[in-house]
Amino acid sequence: MGQRGSKALTVLFLLIIAAIAGAFFLNYQDLARRTLIDNRQAIGSFAQADTLNEATVVAGFESALDENKIAEGERLEDKYGYSFQSTRQQHNLQRFLFRMVLILSITGLLLLVIWWISRKQQKTLESNLLLLSERFEEEKRRNAVLLERRKSEEENVKAVITDITHQLKTPIASLKMSLEIAGSDSFSIEERKQFFMQGSNQIDKLDLMLDSMAKLSQLEAELISIEPTAFSLKELITRVVSSLIMKALNKDIEIEVDIESDHLIVADRKWTTEAVSNILENAIKYSPKKTVITVKGTILPSYALIEVMDEGKGISKEEVNLIYRRFYRGKDAAVLENEGSGVGLYLARKIIEEQGGIIMMKDCQPQGANFQLTIPLALDANTAVIES
């Protein structure tokens, strides 16, 4: 629509210029014709006059038009081969016409330039207005997203507070009951010792839960900075297995380590150890006694792959996408029987993804879970493969 309007205005402008030029030319033609007639009238008047004096000359130019005198002047023009079209008057008229055409052309050109500049400025203004409109719409959409995110975060905060309250309520109630019984004279010393131990266990559970929540809140609030450094994949797996070997032995669970080749990885030593430990600790916690957990390290082109494979019951397909949620604990009875805060896998996923890796879960055959996570390798020339 804008291009059509611009073309129409251009055509109209050119038509106006052509009409003005045509009007000038027609007026010139009329003036030249009238001048020619006046000259012929004067010559005819001079020829028919009895005497030629000043009064006769003035009368010849000022007298009314007479067809006979005009015809006489035209006859004399033909007779003596004289042309009034070559007189100075006609040349002056031609020069006047040329100047008028030149002035008109320059004026039209200037007007055309002014119109073109105005049109260009109008297009620039329209483009800027369109850009501002798009930016406004983009800001509007962004603000809508931010508002929606804020509402979601507010709802998430409420949910987190509810989850924390729910998570803390049970052990606190159990601790309160245990301490009341342990301090009561209505029970035997042996019974009070048992409840005292139960209360101590609840305190350990609360301490574990609060420690997990503190780490989680610090990581989410970016109070903890991930500082990747280059260190050995074998060192990482060794640190993780060493920290949890006693828990595995207490359940008569064997941990097998399979590292095909060693290589330097780029990760935060402390927090990556925390992430892998959370996965291995879950495997120990939910694996039956007298089973084997395999921790395998494989070098891929750009990443190190760590797999933690157990022989437990595994995780149902319905829960595969839920296990990484904050405070989520499975519905299986074996899961609910074990103590836990429900933030281990969430924390592990967040740590691994913060460093450019991924974490996923696959089924083992014939049963069990296989948690796989990737960690970037150090690929420069100074960090080559480590020889065993």
Rank of each mutant, 00 (worst) to 15 (best):
Q365S: 06
T165A: 11
D262H: 03
E139F: 15
D204P: 01
V276C: 08
T162F: 11
V101L: 05
R325C: 00
S83R: 15
E220C: 02
E137R: 15
A248C: 03
R326W: 00
I16Y: 08
D310R: 08
A32N: 12
D163Q: 13
T291Y: 03
E319R: 12
I37Y: 03
A381E: 11
Q94G: 04
T162G: 11
E311T: 05
R99W: 09
S133L: 13
E62R: 06
R269I: 04
T238M: 04
K120A: 03
L104M: 11
E74M: 06
E67H: 12
Q90Y: 01
E134G: 08
S217W: 13
L219K: 12
E339T: 11
E353Y: 08
S302I: 06
D78P: 01
S127C: 08
A369Q: 05
G73V: 01
L219V: 14
V385W: 12
K285E: 08
Y28E: 04
R34S: 09
R239H: 08
G81H: 12
R119C: 06
T238K: 10
I117M: 06
A21C: 09
N156D: 09
S302W: 00
V343M: 10
W115S: 06
I161Q: 14
L373E: 09
Q355A: 02
L300P: 06
G356I: 04
E307D: 06
R329Y: 07
M246Q: 15
K79R: 12
K169A: 10
A21I: 11
Y303S: 13
T10K: 13
I117Y: 01
L219E: 14
E190F: 04
G22S: 14
L65P: 00
F371H: 01
E256W: 01
F96G: 10
E74P: 03
I117N: 01
M177S: 13
L97I: 01
P171S: 05
L175Y: 03
K151N: 15
N282D: 09
S133H: 14
I279N: 10
M213S: 04
G73C: 02
A182L: 08
L236M: 01
F196D: 01
V57Y: 05
I37S: 05
I103Q: 05
L9M: 14
K350Y: 04
E318I: 00
T35R: 07
N201K: 10
I386K: 08
S225L: 10
A182H: 05
N370E: 03
